[in-house]
Design a protein around this nucleic acid. Sequence first.
DNA 1: GTCTATATGTAGATAGAC
DNA 2: GTCTATCTACATATAGAC
Lengths: 220, 220
Amino acid sequence: MKTKDRIVAAALLLFNEQGESNVTTNHIAAHLGISPGNLYYHFRNKNDIIGRIFLQYADHLRKSFTPVTGPANASSSVWFHYLDAVFYVMWEFRFFYANLNDILHRDPELHRQYLLVQQELAENLQALLRELNAQQVLVIPDEEIAPLSEILRMVVSFWVSYQSAQSLTPHISQAVLYQGVARVLLLLKPYFHPEKGLELATLSAHYQALAAQPSDPFHK
Amino acid sequence: MKTKDRIVAAALLLFNEQGESNVTTNHIAAHLGISPGNLYYHFRNKNDIIGRIFLQYADHLRKSFTPVTGPANASSSVWFHYLDAVFYVMWEFRFFYANLNDILHRDPELHRQYLLVQQELAENLQALLRELNAQQVLVIPDEEIAPLSEILRMVVSFWVSYQSAQSLTPHISQAVLYQGVARVLLLLKPYFHPEKGLELATLSAHYQALAAQPSDPFHK
DNA sequence: GTCTATATGTAGATAGAC
DNA sequence: GTCTATCTACATATAGAC
């Protein structure tokens, strides 16, 4: 593995474990057993490293939330796919969500990219909701699609921050993120087609069980 | 006005206008035309100043969200009271919401107070929802009262942050905060008693109009 | 109570040798 | 590519005079 990639991987690890603002470029270098000067040979600055991580983040969002049309969406497995992807992105990039505004406002170029990705995501999410409406899985009034999709994105984007504010220790467990996933389902609950109550119950039970579980220290 | 109070007032003003992290103790002193040393005569440190502002915040929350029982809640004016209070707290202390985790995690004592206030607020909000249930204004399943109240608090607490992330300029307008109030109503919409549709429509129209309005530069 | 001057601490970043 | 040494910049906080 190239030094450059090792730096990105170490940065992501340390940022997630200790919080982005508590991890300096010196810490990253020390963790890898290289010098600060070497780190600055590979990256212009700390934002440059974060920018690399952001590309992974954007990539994941694009791959996981590209909407698929057709009856596939009527199946329950599609829900697991999307909700697991929500969990994954919250977990894998929790440092980013925990510090979103700091990170964005100190780097206008990154902020621009973020807004583009969010715009795409908003469109994909609305398309998905419309598709689920068409499949009679959900029943959402047309004019509520946009604001509802915005609230869903908002809850996912700030669930990590919210949970961090709720606890004296900054540590974020997988369980509290699954709680966030369960809340997303709760937000959609009033809009589920009456005949899909059983499916919703199954989904809810699944994520609520994960939310109740003590955090797995051997997560990948 | 005592110097100590002038410092608190200036700090709140500058924090809200420029963001807490962009305003140093030196800036506050300069704004008042006093020396940094003088500021530190009145306050032990910056957190100490923020702690004073927090007392105003907590006071407002306690006064505005103490639940009233009885048929008063069936009236539509009670909605305006609570929703206006939501707007006021978001606006008046927007610097705090914009930087919540930074501020809390750098001052454990403040964080403890925050959690106490939030706990109270959560209880008051749940009592209020139960009361509105009893008055047949809302129809919320018992087991959803707690999670719904949590989502409402979460959306209010992070609406400022969310809006800040959505814009390249950190400036927060009154209109976007009224949008947040409108979203709170949207979250409650599925739970409104079918016969209260007209009342909901009136409320929504009111806050959506304020949300659409260009920001008033002469706000009090 | 208020001032001037200065100390402390630290993160981010660079220069130049190897 | 990597190292050591160092610099800059700045916010927080303090000392001691008035």
